[in-house]
């Protein structure tokens, strides 16, 4: 575990795809530095040979039959879309001009 408790906030915000203001970056860096400092406690625990828990108790994969069921009509599915046209969601251009 890294000891300086400082995260590269620009890098992490980029991974998380969240725009942060300079003020937010400064505040979060300080506050999360405190939180990461507190997380250091976990180093005290002997976890040799301990299985990690992803769930509160043992659950294995649960499958249902892969059968067609009811689905939303297009209008219902798109009712909350920020921009739509001809039964589709409109988004900004994602490919650059050749």
């Amino acid at each position: 575990m890294k000891n300086d408790n400082a995260m590269d906030i620009d890098y992490v915000a980029r991974l998380a795809r969240v725009a942060l203001s300079d003020e937010e970056k400064a505040t979060f860096a300080k506050q999360l530095g405190d939180v990461l400092g507190y997380f250091e406690k976990l180093k005290e625990v002997d976890v040799a040979g301990v299985e990690p828990s992803a769930h509160p108790y043992e659950v294995s994969n649960v499958w249902r039959a892969d059968e067609p069921g009811e689905a939303f009509a297009v209008d219902e599915a798109l009712a909350n879309a920020p921009a739509r046209r001809e039964g589709q969601i409109v988004v900004p251009k994602v490919v650059e001009d050749a």
Binding site: M1, K2, F39, L42, V45, V47, V50, E51, P52, S53, A54, P56, Y57
Partner: peptide, 17 residues
């Protein structure tokens, strides 16, 4: 950081249970 934080936390979670 995954091993140091997330994986370790999952193991301590087992201890807590």
């Amino acid at each position: 950081y995954y091993d140091a934080y997330y994986l370790r936390a999952q193991k301590v979670r087992t201890r807590i249970r």
